[in-house]
């Protein structure tokens, strides 16, 4: 990233290069819209990973709220469903195995997004080179890529979180009956939903750092490349 200002010269006031935020958002949005299918593939892996993450979170919330009621029927239903409950257990956290699975799924998703974003950078070599020939600074390119990843992250993780929550609630209802949902607090589900979205957004932004830095460092002469 370029951080230093131009040297002091007689016309330093005019030596200015800018890309307003509104314009960068517009460019990022248009890029996503035009390459809709590619963006969709990048987003799909995020949707799946976040759906799984959120499904596990909300499932745990549901089981926990059922246990908190102290209702013996619920306790037995949970044990039948495979929860390992001793008579003294009063709350259910996610098991180490679940945590490990969630971590792995997020990791796989991260690698998938990095891969997709690197492809997108190499597809856009000429576009990036051209923008640099027109005077774009490294940080303009970096910002556009980060904004794109941010938008993909928001949409993908929101979709994933909703799918995951819906799946967890529906499966919970089928397994334990409709009354099992009653003790479940809305705030708890909302928290899991927001947490999943934050994780998804973080994942999307983390995954784009390397590809975006690679794009930003690209030389303007790449614009002259003949081949696609």
């Amino acid at each position: 990233m370029q951080t230093h200002e131009p040297h002091q010269t007689s016309d330093s006031a005019q030596r200015l290069l800018v890309l307003p935020l509104g314009k960068s958002i517009q460019i990022a949005f248009q890029s996503l819209r035009v390459r809709f299918l590619r963006s969709l593939i990048t987003v799909a892996s995020l949707v799946l990973a976040i759906a799984f993450f959120c499904f596990t979170q909300v499932g745990t919330d549901l089981a926990d709220s059922m246990l908190q009621t102290g209702n013996d029927g619920f306790r037995q239903a949970l044990v039948r469903a495979g929860y390992d409950l001793s008579p003294v257990t009063t709350s259910i956290g996610s098991t180490p195995k679940q945590k490990w699975l969630m971590f792995l799924s997020l990791l796989v998703c991260l690698v998938g997004i990095v891969n997709a974003q690197l492809m997108s950078v190499s597809e856009r070599v000429r576009e990036i080179g051209t923008m640099k020939c027109l005077g774009a600074l490294d940080r303009f390119i970096l910002r556009i890529f980060l904004l794109e990843a941010g938008m993909q992250g928001l949409v993908g993780s929101a979709a994933g979180a909703l799918v995951g929550t819906a799946a967890a609630l529906i499966i919970g209802m089928v397994r334990f009956g409709p009354q099992a949902l009653k003790p479940l607090a809305f705030s708890q589900v909302a928290f899991s939903l927001l947490l999943s979205m934050a994780v998804g957004l973080g994942l999307s932004l983390t995954a784009v750092i390397y590809p975006a830095a690679k794009a930003a460092r690209m030389q303007p002469v790449e614009a002259m490349r003949r081949e696609f």
């Binding site: 230093h4 131009p6 030596r15 640099k132 774009a136 600074l137 003949r226």
Partner: peptide, 18 residues
Amino acid sequence: DAYELAWLRCRKIGYIFQ
């Protein structure tokens, strides 16, 4: 430096490509 080169490309030179 990189900033000044970018400025030069922006203001002093217009590029046309094949």
